[in-house]
Design a protein around this nucleic acid. Sequence first.
RNA 1: GGCCGGGUGGCGGAAUUGGUAUACGCGUUCGACUUAAAAUCGAAUGGGUCUCCCAUACGGGUUCAAGUCCCGUCCCGGCUACCA
Length: 750
Amino acid sequence: MNRYNPLAIESKWQKIWEDSEAFKADEASDKPKKFLAEMFPYPSGAGLHVGHVRNFTIVDVLARYYAQKGFNVLRPFGYDTFGLPAENYAIKTGVSPKVATDTNVKNFRNQLKKLGYAIDWSREINTSSPEYYKWTQWCFLQLYKKGLAYQKESYQWWCPVDQTVLANEQVENGHCWRCGSEVEKKKMKQWFFKITAYADELLECVDELDWPEKIKVMQKNWIGRSEGAEIDFETDAGKITVFTTRPDTIYGATFLVLAPEHPLIRELTTENTKEAVEEYCRAAIKKSEIERQESKEKTGVFTGAYAVNPATKEKIPVWVADYVLMGYGTGAIMAVPAGDERDREFAEKFDLPVVEITKTPEKPFGTPKTTYRMRDWLISRQRYWGCPIPIAYDKDGNPHPIPEDQLPVMIPEVDDFKPDNSGHSALAKATDWLKVEIDGEEMTRETDTLDGYACSSWYLWRYASPHDAAHAWHPEAVKYWEPLDVYCGGDHAVAHLLYIRFWCKFFADEGKLPFREPIVKLLYNGYINAPDGKKMSKSKGNVIDPLDVINDGYGADTLRTYEMFIGPYDQDAAWNPRSVGGVYRFLNRCWTLVFEKEIEKKSKNLNLLHKTIKKVTEDIERAAFNTAISTLMEFVNELYKTGASEEDLVTLAKLLKPFAPHLASEMLEQLRADDAWPTYDEEQLVEELVEVVVQVNGKLRAKLAVPVEDLEDEEKVTEMALSDGNVRKFAAEPKKTIYVKKAKLLNIVA
RNA sequence: GGCCGGGUGGCGGAAUUGGUAUACGCGUUCGACUUAAAAUCGAAUGGGUCUCCCAUACGGGUUCAAGUCCCGUCCCGGCUACCA
């Protein structure tokens, strides 16, 4: 007897698909289009994990479903290859990041092919390839030209011994992770993208997105718009401008508080408070924002200066405290201890006056002002393995853009990737590369690279024309394919998904994109945890390798179908090896029906067949993949009981194909059928005898088999119900009846 | 602290618009096949004092009818965390 042999079937079909370029999207087509993508992965040395498989399979199910429905489907793939792991690996082993990345990409590609994904391989992209990052640099220059890429002094962690900038996570308890010396905050010039220029539009458009509510709320909170006013307070050293959302509470403002970084502090401080203020500010600035917020215990110091409350004309003291942040509003607040909990705490601790707000000004004080929590996007990275910023500096240190015809600015080859005392990335070691001539003037290149999020802020548009040497994206190609219909991922709820929206709006304003939102629908999938319910991690030794599942004999179809069956796609789920076996049994039963069992002449249950088509179609449309599969299981269970006709089996194979494409292809080949998505016949959904549930006082007491033509006749149904012995027992004296035809339910109130 | 999810059998989960709670799968038990086992096939499977009653975290409420809606409480997870 033959057996279902997934590995043989799968390699057969994978070869057929590869040879025929089965998933190549049509360049131009009259067919309606669907463009689907996952959040492209960072290809780590460990290869695919089960979380990737869940994410990519969701996209694959939809891509195959829409292709079967006759859409022109674009389902490309790419790799987000810049990043710290490759650089650290290079430091450790001396293998260049490029070589390591190429190896990892190759491995990923092979693994993706083993999963049978319907990827258009002619559109593969890789953010660290010069053909790609040339255009990342071009994007930077477009933003630069419009003043949306700019330099600003900003405080950075600095190790005075190693003479290098440190990332937040490289600072441990205020000490350098390498040498242990106490770190400093140093003002350094950094590049920023002015995302705040689009704050309002980014906020307002959120509501219209077909995205999970959770993500929309997170984006709104991140942008954090507050309406309020700026109010000036006069002091001997000049005016202090504060931002408040409650200008109406000004009669209760009994003191001012400045952030420790506030520029007016020096002038405000009097002789006798100078030492204390300076020490407080020095200590506060040194702390990270995280450390500052760790303790809610209020600290602060009096400057010795007073300001005049413009409403009460009273003199109120000016304090410095680290609960006021320089980066928000004006870095100064008017404290209203009677109205604000934080101000009250501060007032209580330092014995400052608390005045009840008895009056509100008739004409609001100050100038109306809107502020945002969101800050501009810091994009400078002192790292080697990233996209070089296409800027050079003249002798006076002024930045100049690299002319577009000189792009890409290639990553220079270096032997030593280790950070050193220069405070620059390893790019600074490429001495020949550093020198560049622009308009006859000798200049020095920028040695910082771009935040990796810049590379992923435009890749969805590159997919439309991935090999275009003349454009970042071809205008006609994006017009046809974009915006992306479905995006699927389980990470980057704010950063990436906000940055790509920002670039979309910018390039729309530039006339380069004919839409203002890049992603129509977002599916945000949950994590897959280890069988013990904990996060999978190498150190815990509880990692499930998807390739092991395939090679153990289950095959890719079982793996894919299992990960879709594991639970609702947007919830976390724990891996269950036994359930994998259950899904394998199901596929085995499908195979057996076609290859081992006698095929009936006629379908025994057309009603069930058409119901199954309807349910599976609707479930895929609403991304309820787990119930789509359970519907197919019920169908197969029924076919085992009644026998299966050719029509039953062709339909089963077609409905199964998005989940288990290899097996379904094998079944369809055997049945000599195409894979066109089946449609259901409304008439076949109607049953001759309809089950009507009879309740008495809401409790189930009987089930009636009512001829479909009598379903409209409430009187007749009621009569049937009351002739039932059990119903009569509980409803000897019916008071009234409620007949819900849609629910096929009769409730008798007795 | 704030916001957002969630709590249903031994387990993962289903119930889409307030209308038969526990679909489907796992596990377990029994049976068939087999010398035997595996695989496969079939049957049963929330609990109980079992014509009926009780169960969707807990306590109330609305309704002819509540897992679903409302009020309160508890627990778990995620995000966020002095943003004036």
